[in-house]
C-alpha cells in the first residue's frame, strides 16, 4: 500500500461513477485523460471512479472499456495513475489493481513543490456513512432509483446535508474534517464524495473539493504545489 507520493503536476478527479445509469462521464473523461497524456500530467482518481452500489453491468462494461484504455494510454506514456478507494467502489478494490495495473491507495500524502497535500475521498468523515456503513450502502442502492428521476439529486442531498451539519456543529462536516487534517501539517486538503466542487480558505489552511463527473466536469490541478479548482471544457473546440 502506498500513501506517500511526489508529483510536480497532477490532476485530481473524483466521483466518476462509471457504470451508474445516470453517469455522462465517459466521453468527456476519455477526452480529459487524453489531454492529461498530451500535457504529461499524472492523474489521481479520488474515489468512486467505478460504481458498484448503483451499477448497471451493461453500462459498467460499456463505460469501463474506453476509460480503462485511455488510462492505459496515459500510463503507457510514463504518467502515473493513482486510484483512491471511495465508498461506492470498495467492493472492486481487489480487481482494480489488476485492471488498472496501478497502485490502489486509501489516501495520498502528496508532496508537490514545497507543499504537502492530502488527497482523500472523504467518506470517512460523512456522519451518515460512519454511523452505519451497512445502512448507508442500502440507502445508496435505493437512492439509485432517485438518480434515474433526477441525476443531480445526490448533489442537492449532499448540499442540504452539509447545511444541516453546519447548523448542528457550526461548520459542514467536510470542512471540519479538512480543518482537522490541516492541523496535522498539510497545506491543502482535497476531498471528493459530496459531489459539490468548492475552494475554501479555512483558518487552518486550504480546502478544495474536486466535485464530480457523474454530471459535472470539475477537476483540481496541482502544479508545483499550487492547487486550483478548474472546470474541464473540451480542448478540441
Amino acid at each position: 500500500m502506498i500513501i506517500d507520493a511526489e508529483e510536480e503536476r497532477l490532476f485530481v478527479i473524483s466521483d466518476l461513477h462509471l457504470g451508474n445509469p445516470s453517469s455522462t462521464a465517459r466521453g468527456r473523461l476519455v477526452e480529459f485523460l487524453d489531454y492529461a497524456r498530451i500535457t504529461g500530467t499524472s492523474v489521481c482518481i479520488n474515489g468512486d471512479g467505478f460504481e458498484m452500489l448503483q451499477t448497471s453491468f451493461t453500462r459498467l462494461a460499456s463505460d469501463a472499456v474506453p476509460v480503462l484504455n485511455a488510462l492505459r494510454r496515459l500510463m503507457g506514456d510514463g504518467n502515473r495513475v493513482y486510484y483512491l478507494v471511495g465508498n461506492h467502489d470498495i467492493a472492486l478494490e481487489h480487481f482494480l489493481e489488476d485492471w488498472l495495473f496501478t497502485q490502489i491507495a486509501p489516501f495520498l500524502n502528496l508532496r508537490s513543490g514545497d507543499a504537502l497535500i492530502r488527497i482523500e475521498h472523504g467518506h470517512l468523515y460523512d456522519p451518515w456513512f460512519v454511523r452505519s456503513p451497512r445502512t448507508y450502502e442500502i440507502s445508496a442502492r435505493a437512492a439509485g432509483f432517485a438518480l434515474l428521476v433526477h441525476p443531480d439529486i445526490y448533489s442537492a442531498y449532499a448540499h442540504v446535508q452539509a447545511k444541516a451539519g453546519a447548523r448542528r456543529r457550526g461548520v459542514p462536516p467536510d470542512e471540519a474534517a479538512a480543518a482537522m487534517l490541516l492541523d496535522r501539517g498539510f497545506d491543502t486538503v482535497i476531498f471528493g464524495h459530496t459531489h459539490n466542487p468548492c475552494d475554501v480558505d479555512l483558518a487552518e489552511g486550504h480546502y478544495v473539493n474536486s466535485g464530480n463527473w457523474l454530471r459535472g466536469s470539475s477537476y483540481v490541478e496541482i502544479d508545483q504545489g499550487k492547487v486550483e479548482l478548474k472546470k474541464w471544457e473540451s480542448w478540441r473546440t
Binding site: 500513501i3 486509501p106 470517512l124 482537522m180 487534517l181 496535522r184
Partner: peptide, 9 residues
C-alpha cells in the same frame, strides 16, 4: 476515532 487515517499513517 475522528481521524482514522492517522492510525494508518
Amino acid at each position: 476515532r475522528r481521524d482514522p487515517t492517522f492510525a494508518l499513517e
